[in-house]
Nucleic acid binder design. Sequence first.
DNA 1: CATGAATGAGTCTTCATTCAT
DNA 2: CATGAATGAAGACTCATTCAT
Lengths: 218, 218, 218, 218
Amino acid sequence: MLVVHFHQLAFDSLTQMPRKSTTPRKLPQQDRSKITVDAILTATARILTQEGYDRATTNRIAELAGVSIGSLYQYFPSKEALITSLAEHHVNTMMAIIESKLKDLFNAPIEVVLHELVEACIAAHAVDPMLHKVLNEQVPRINNTNAEAQFTALLRAYLELHRDQIQPQNLDLTVFILERAVEALTHAAVIDRPELLSDGQLQQEITNLLLSYLVEKT
Amino acid sequence: MLVVHFHQLAFDSLTQMPRKSTTPRKLPQQDRSKITVDAILTATARILTQEGYDRATTNRIAELAGVSIGSLYQYFPSKEALITSLAEHHVNTMMAIIESKLKDLFNAPIEVVLHELVEACIAAHAVDPMLHKVLNEQVPRINNTNAEAQFTALLRAYLELHRDQIQPQNLDLTVFILERAVEALTHAAVIDRPELLSDGQLQQEITNLLLSYLVEKT
Amino acid sequence: MLVVHFHQLAFDSLTQMPRKSTTPRKLPQQDRSKITVDAILTATARILTQEGYDRATTNRIAELAGVSIGSLYQYFPSKEALITSLAEHHVNTMMAIIESKLKDLFNAPIEVVLHELVEACIAAHAVDPMLHKVLNEQVPRINNTNAEAQFTALLRAYLELHRDQIQPQNLDLTVFILERAVEALTHAAVIDRPELLSDGQLQQEITNLLLSYLVEKT
Amino acid sequence: MLVVHFHQLAFDSLTQMPRKSTTPRKLPQQDRSKITVDAILTATARILTQEGYDRATTNRIAELAGVSIGSLYQYFPSKEALITSLAEHHVNTMMAIIESKLKDLFNAPIEVVLHELVEACIAAHAVDPMLHKVLNEQVPRINNTNAEAQFTALLRAYLELHRDQIQPQNLDLTVFILERAVEALTHAAVIDRPELLSDGQLQQEITNLLLSYLVEKT
DNA sequence: CATGAATGAGTCTTCATTCAT
DNA sequence: CATGAATGAAGACTCATTCAT
């Protein structure tokens, strides 16, 4: 009960805008503001993915957003804050997908959970692979920490619950390996080998990798 | 015989990076030149790892190298060429380590090879983790391709030779998964959790991951 | 009628320089912008004439214009564009002078036309002799072409109309000689021997040169 | 007598290296030195004409000359001195041609002299038109003065001798006009309209221009 | 608040020239 | 003397950010 409760709370809170230091100067309370902010974020994402990080100057972003450079700085105190905001938004989107897929699986068997996990990760990475890549590379590690930490906690909780069914004993290591492996393989697949994802083969293979590691019968 | 021979030839050639595109402007012929080039590369690595990509301006690099900016451009036609050169140098160093550890293991059993592979990867990443991270993130994908491709070919050849002892049937997928998983986990460990590497636990765990995937007895 | 019409149209259009290639980056829309652009062009001309081409660095120009270097590049995409723009402006000014003096002379007798032509050229060169010299020497031939071509066409049309009154038969050669001679002599006079222009002597002499060539009675 | 004597002396001295401020650091007394100096001058001319003034860096010149940059500075104290030296050399060459053609024409009739003068000028410009153009544009007016002044003096002397056969009375103006007109027309022809020179038409026309001016019978 | 003109520190890069070997 | 490595002032240009309108 408790655990489940904790779980649901946690998952639900994944999408909450975490209170970060580089807060947008102004909460978009009015519609106009919200539209402007969205336009800016959308333009940023577009330039980042289609033209690369170097071309993503604030002036160009403002231009593509159909907004004056002054307005951009009205809503984002600095370029860093803008990028960070976009990154958080993107992470939240991805996490929301993963969350929705993993909801109610806390008591499901390992095979099912892993299968869904891999599927969810692939789906999340499919949202905007290039954006994810660029953000991953250029953003100096501020964000995801929060959302990721919650995810890590959940995964750990799940593994503890099913401890007797898995081989590895050091859960810290196990969580580390699971998380990183799914992320890396999913990301690599989406970016470098999208063709491998068309049929479910690679997905299955990744699932096998994790599954055999967790439940291998040596 | 032939296979082994091929193997050795291949591995030995991993470090021969044919410098084509971004060739250093002038091959250092005198001792003084060599010292200068080394100083520049060393300074570049130092700034990259300790101060970040943004601080790595050519003037600052020259300054830290104790060399005039003119000298820097005497040996590297552009900043990109300099970074590329450093990247190649670093990849070569890492590959040399991996090569030396995997030499003569072409006919060794899977457990041994995987064990050595993981160990070699960790060792390679330990050379200069931050540099590897920065280069991985910022350098627009020119390098490693070559050396990596050879490594991929070798791995594939090994798997083909031992095909009857492994579970996965689609070797393309398998190679993809093995490579990416080791790289990602090793990299992540060295960067984010170096403490996990002190005792051999994580290394063993990664080995287990790969091993159980390859030879699992479901 | 028609000819005269053509003539007037043509002359009127001499000053319309279609700015194509090296277009100013941003057309000044506000008053402030116009002032800035003017200041930059003025400063450029001043430095070019008073300090020479080598001293005409973009930073120095901006400084003398009392404008930041950023503003300079806001309106001119490159140094070349700036110089070109100034050159066009100057050629237009000179051509406007020549045009206004030669207007309505299409049917005038040769003596009058030549007299006015020389006078007009001298007047045009007197606008800013040093600037004309520097631009003539350093600017890689982009400009005048257009305006000059029209002038050439006009001159040729005039000569054709009066063909029976002139000695030379090959109009191509004649036009070439007339144009180059007036330009060269006028330019040389203004630059190297301004004192020769004070009284009308040299002007008269140049006129004689051209006149005797065109209508000589050998 | 006296006049003729003066004339010959003058013409003969046209080719003398005038004692200028920017003297080559070292007079090429030994063969080695002379060869080196020649190689440098030749390379300079080649780069200037074939690649343009911007590409003519001292290092590049030294390289093409097959000489070290240090050696270049052994013989020429500065880039300016090098260019100046080349310019003088070129002017001397051109003047030598003109001189040899005009030799012994001091008492010849005007028609002959003008004809030969134009021919000589065209021949002189044909030596290396591009070099002449580039030097004319870029070199800050140091040189020719000397040689040109002598030529001017000669021309003036000739006109004085034949004063009663020419129309213009102000010899200063006349000399100015003759010199500039031939130079400008010849130069323009060689550079912009070389095709006009193939048959003798343009040459004849230029001669006519000058002739009709000098001897016109209005 | 929106606008966009203006700012200027800071980047990469060149090239004439010097000087140790 | 020749060599060529080294120098560093200086130039063209960018871009995050500010502020007058």
